[in-house]
Amino acid sequence: MTYKLLLLDDEPAILSALSRVINRIGAERLGAPCRISAYTDASLALTSLQSEPYDLVITDFRMPAMSGLDFLREAIRYQPDIARIIISGHADLPTMVAAINDTQVFRFVGKPWDDNELQLAVIQALHVYTLSRENQRLADLVRVQQGTISRQEAELRQLESECPGITRVERDERGAIYLDEDNL
């Protein structure tokens, strides 16, 4: 297993610095190796979120094109149980409240961040994420046994969490399947 992380910040040098800090955590402490995809452009990051499953997304708060909050709102439409961390230079109270209420962000990390604190936040976020996904799987298993949902539905949920979007196949009125060539 490999953890997949998505980073978003309008500043490339910040992305490099963040990647270094996260890579320094090491597979032993993280429980698995991790792979980082870094984006400076929010819309490209969203495109990737539509097809690639991620475990954790870390985004800057203040970006010129799209705020970190708006980005997360979009992101969780594609991957509802992705773990999320916001990095912000000036997290005022209304912002934090909005972030917590609207996007259930896991952690706020200040800018400049403390390397240890950031590493800890990443480790915890991934553990919590893994746990909740495991819980979900077990709960579905129980529901299948109790007959609340079908085995097929449970399979679908599992599939969806591994390949976002795959279960939401679009059909036209004659039942033909739309294939989004970008996602192939």
Binding site: E11, A13, I14, S16, A17, L18, R20, V21, R24, G89, K111, P112, W113, D115
Partner: peptide, 13 residues
């Protein structure tokens, strides 16, 4: 603040 962020973090790395 932005350059300070990454310079500081890079020094750690």
């Amino acid at each position: 603040n932005n350059p300070i962020c990454y310079v500081q973090s890079n020094l750690g790395s």
